Amino acid sequence: MSLDDTPVLNSLGFAKPPAQTRVVVAMSGGVDSSVVAAMLAEEGYDVVGVTLQLYDHGAALAKKGACCAGVDIHDARRVAEEMGFPHYVLDYENIFQDAVIDEFADSYLAGATPVPCIRCNERVKFKDLLETAKDLDADCMATGHYIQRVMGDAGPQLHSAADANRDQSYFLFSTTAEQLDYLRFPLGHLPSKDATRALAAKYGLAVADKPDSQDICFVPNGNYASVIEKLRPGAAEAGEIVDTEGKVLGTHNGVIHYTIGQRRGLGIGGLADPLYVVRLDVDKKHVIVGPKELLSTRTIPVREINWIGDGKLTDVAEREITVRVRSTRPPRPAILRPISETEAEVELLTPEEGVSPGQACVFYDPESPRIFGGGWIWRGY
């Protein structure tokens, strides 16, 4: 085939006109996914908007910043009407309860610090919803996530967003190569959230000034413990706050009220040096506290690894990478040593404080914005 015969790809990477390219847009009702849907509709794509009802939206109507609650479903539907494409609401309450909320509660009860947004992407949006998109004969599914899909020699790669302040790679590390082949992220290249809102204003969307969602969608005001107590009655059993030698320093009203690295609100004032939560012993109902230096971690065991780098994870005995152990922290230099295709040990070149079981450890290429995947931190220290 000569260069002149090379098929011209549309903006979503298909060799056919936009009007012949069906794309399902996952619409949360927020400004990001609304802009994606409006942008693709304006370009002439065959857009189908889909919003997931994830929990009782009647109870969530009064919660500002909730995702996929009643007001958000209304906002998504209104955008579809304004831009002239079909919109569907799918009842995913049972799926969301089983795949995300129940594990969130059980993880907290086990003393971990879960990240339900990752499980939602992995088990709901990029699994069940993606299959629904295929059932609708869509060529691809687009979302409003701030991350980039870049074509490499061996297929699509996952890259961090152009705007580091909006980058959502930490929450999308479990995206598989097969899913990445089908997904599109039209906002990943934008320089800022202001650019997204400018596009919303350009399209005349009523959500242009809508505030960003805050906290976990099903946790009102960030009060995790109250949600756990409702989901698992009796979970907040009282116990003791002890030091690393087992000396009792005080009492608490439930391990679920504490997280690794916490300093404030321990109720054990009057001590010479500040103490931090360094470990949670659920079986003994102990909150174990100690000096800040005990929070430093250099070696992190990781399991349930999703590897989307080149070749297999176990192709080399060790490799230099950077890792992120919390969504709010920048990637740090580390050595990745595989144990199997799904387990590894990560050695941080500089110790990190507050590493907690249940959090994700996300792998990055130290030489580029590419994400190599990641896994779950799985035991205490």
Score class of each variant (00 low, 15 high):
residue 165 N to R: 15
residue 85 F to R: 07
residue 283 D to K: 14
residue 336 L to D: 04
residue 132 T to R: 06
residue 280 L to Y: 00
residue 366 P to H: 13
residue 319 R to K: 15
residue 264 R to P: 08
residue 274 P to R: 09
residue 183 L to N: 06
residue 303 R to F: 13
residue 113 T to V: 10
residue 86 P to E: 02
residue 373 G to P: 07
residue 355 V to E: 02
residue 215 D to M: 15
residue 164 A to G: 12
residue 134 K to D: 10
residue 103 E to K: 10
residue 136 L to M: 15
residue 104 F to I: 07
residue 139 D to W: 00
residue 365 D to P: 11
residue 238 A to Y: 10
residue 24 V to E: 08
residue 281 D to I: 06
residue 265 G to I: 04
residue 143 T to F: 03
residue 95 I to M: 11
residue 64 K to W: 05
residue 39 M to D: 00
residue 357 P to F: 00
residue 227 V to T: 12
residue 25 V to T: 01
residue 10 N to S: 09
residue 225 A to F: 07
residue 323 V to R: 07
residue 125 K to H: 04
residue 228 I to V: 15
residue 105 A to L: 03
residue 324 R to Y: 02
residue 183 L to Y: 03
residue 369 P to T: 13
residue 285 K to S: 13
residue 195 A to D: 01
residue 367 E to K: 15
residue 13 G to E: 09
residue 142 A to C: 08
residue 87 H to Q: 09
residue 127 K to P: 03
residue 106 D to T: 14
residue 357 P to K: 03
residue 377 I to H: 03
residue 120 C to W: 03
residue 188 G to T: 04
residue 203 Y to M: 03
residue 174 S to W: 08
residue 317 A to W: 15
residue 148 Q to S: 01
residue 94 N to K: 14
residue 307 W to S: 09
residue 179 Q to I: 07
residue 91 D to I: 04
